[in-house]
Design a protein around this nucleic acid. Structure first.
Lengths: 236, 236
DNA sequence: TGCATATTGCTTGTCGACAAGAAAAATACA
DNA sequence: TGTATTTTTCTTGTCGACAAGCAATATGCA
């Protein structure tokens, strides 16, 4: 009784069409921050009660999430948060490094004047998170920083894949820092500054190789955690 | 009256959960084959009547398609088949060429014995379509051929993006061959054979550069077509 | 006790109906 | 006649209810 009253008493009315987005955003964040454990079950009725709406908008949000691979649905049975495939991290790393390179390279090539302030803002937010040693904020702002660079590259196909990879990376990093309780090195802040400088100077190849080093550095750190079999490289 | 009776009299009962997939698959094919014109409106009620089911499964299929960018939905208004952005084809071409390269390269690296027969089968289907001068079949089997190669590369992130690009490519090629009524050159069949040989020989760099030439060749052909149209619409 | 079958419970899949929002059409007014 | 306003229409967004499928439990029987 108290539950239902406390659930959504302040927002008895919401705008038409906003329900789906609200559920989608919140669920997405909870999944990426590992507040919802991979493999944990998701119940439509429970969510409907929690958000004070019917199952229909919940369902639509779940279908959306399932389309992005964040949840999996067993037909006629249950729905669960997607597991992280720790045994097959190599394809993830390969894709990550390549997208780091391509998006940064394209940013150096195609960025406009108005893009740099946005990138710098994300960089500042990241540096601030590092200074505050706020792990969750570090993970989120790091992803936002690289996403901003990718936007400046103006290739929606690459930004689409890259954002998906960054999402999955959030889950992995969250696990990484949860178990080891380290901070992102200050070194990454410097590397980010270097990336910005190369982009601004429109040094395409320089931005490419700097991004590559940066990405491989991160991958190496995570790899050190999850032992890996064979290294591989892609020449562009 | 006749409509409703003729719509689905033979299938009064369908399995639970199959409705969404049926609508999704069929709508997707119709969009990719341009049977549904880009920009054309999609009405939920109409579809519900056409398939003899309620709006709910239709809606889910539409949400899925929207997640893949094949349809766009105007809030509270209408739903329409996504337009092809002819003015911004370059990002598409860039992504296409890179994915051609990466997937072929990875296939040369990671393919297993059982992959080659599947690739050869798609190649044969494509060669057959070329021989029969069946344009629609050429477009579809060409995409299936490269998708099979990508599968052998075993990187789901790349295959995911690549398949999306191939889908969009189907729409563009469909338009290309519809307006000019040409056939794929026999040359492509030979190039496909060369790709297979390089993959089988595990010649990673060879496969990479062959895929690059192959992709750039196709891009060039399509670009030559649209280059003539663009100058007129510069002002917009 | 051990196994096959029926029952129950829980979750998802589908339905029909109603309300909201926006465009188009109709009306009123200057 | 032209513009502002209202009404209508059309489509989507949300709801509550019911049915189907599956798993677990309970029951029957040797």
């Amino acid at each position: 009784m108290t539950e239902k009253d406390a659930a959504a008493p302040s927002l008895p009315e919401r705008k038409r069409g906003s329900g789906v987005k609200m559920v989608y955003d919140l669920l997405r964040d909870e999944i990426l921050d590992l507040k919802l454990a991979p493999g944990s079950l998701v119940d439509e009725v429970q969510l409907a009660e929690r958000f004070g709406m019917s199952r229909t908008p919940i369902r639509e949000a779940l279908v959306r999430l399932s389309g992005e691979g964040l949840i999996e649905t067993l037909p006629n049975r249950s729905t669960m948060v997607s597991n992280i495939d720790f045994l097959n991290l190599n394809p993830f790393f390969d894709a990550m490094v390549l997208m780091y390179r391509v998006t940064t390279r394209l940013a150096a090539q195609h960025h406009r004047a108005e893009d740099l302030p946005l990138i710098r803002a994300q960089h500042a937010a990241y540096a601030d998170a590092v200074a505050r040693r706020d792990t969750l904020a570090m993970i989120a702002t790091n992803a936002a920083f690289h996403s901003a660079i990718a936007e400046a590259g103006r290739n929606s196909y690459f930004t689409g894949l890259f954002n998906r990879l960054l999402d999955e990376g959030r889950r992995i990093l969250r696990l990484y820092y949860h178990s080891y309780d380290e901070q992102f090195p200050q070194r990454f802040v410097d590397e980010h500054e270097r990336l910005i400088a190369l982009i601004e100077a429109r040094d395409v190849d320089g931005a490419d190789s700097a991004a590559r080093e940066h990405a491989e550095q991160i991958v190496l750190q995570v790899q050190r955690l999850f032992a890996r079999k064979d290294p591989l490289s892609l020449s562009l």
